[in-house]
Amino acid sequence: MDLEDQYDRIFRYLYFYFHDRHLAEDLTQEAFLRFLGSRTYRDENRQLQYLYTIARNLCRQYYRDKTITYSLDEEKDITVTDGFENSLIQTLSLQKALQSLSPEEREMIFLRYVNDVPVPVISGLYQLSRFAVYRKLKSILQKVRVEMEADGYE
């Protein structure tokens, strides 16, 4: 596995969630240290799945910790939003369509089409069969398209 290449992708994945460069990079490095600190399968897909699992757990942990801090300190929350919401408005209609998806659906689309994660890895991450992943991806894309057409975009 090309670690340097995966570094960029994990960074993009975390940036997609937090939209904070520094936070995303901190967590990327944390994920890599954990990944390298434990030995795992020789198989590349299994390794990749493990790396994404670590990154995803870090995300969740971060969300959880932040919620606690917020409720205790009553400080202004560090806005944690996912990438689609805050990115520059390029295609308003596409953005709206993506926004209508569930977070899991958005993540799946991101992993497959933006980060080029192989389908077997996605199927491992979501505990779905490969076939189910293919079908799900198709149906999500279809949903996006329908949503955009309803918005008057051809």
């Binding site: 670690l3 340097e4 570094y7 960029d8 960074f11 993009r12 940036y15 997609f16 460069r21 995303a24 990079e25 990327t28 490095q29 890599f32 990438g83 689609f84 990115s87 390029q90 295609t91 596409l94 953005q95 993506l98 689309i109 991101f110 089409y113 933006v114 894309l141 996006v144 398209r145 955009m148 975009y153 051809e154």
Partner: peptide
């Protein structure tokens, strides 16, 4: 709109900046 164009648009939308400390980290 066909699927490929849709995917390309999604990719554009989710573009991220480059990580800054990558080379230092690998060093």
């Amino acid at each position: 709109m066909n699927e490929e164009r849709l995917i390309l648009q999604i990719r554009d939308l989710c573009d991220s900046p480059q990580p800054e400390n990558k080379s230092k980290f690998f060093q």
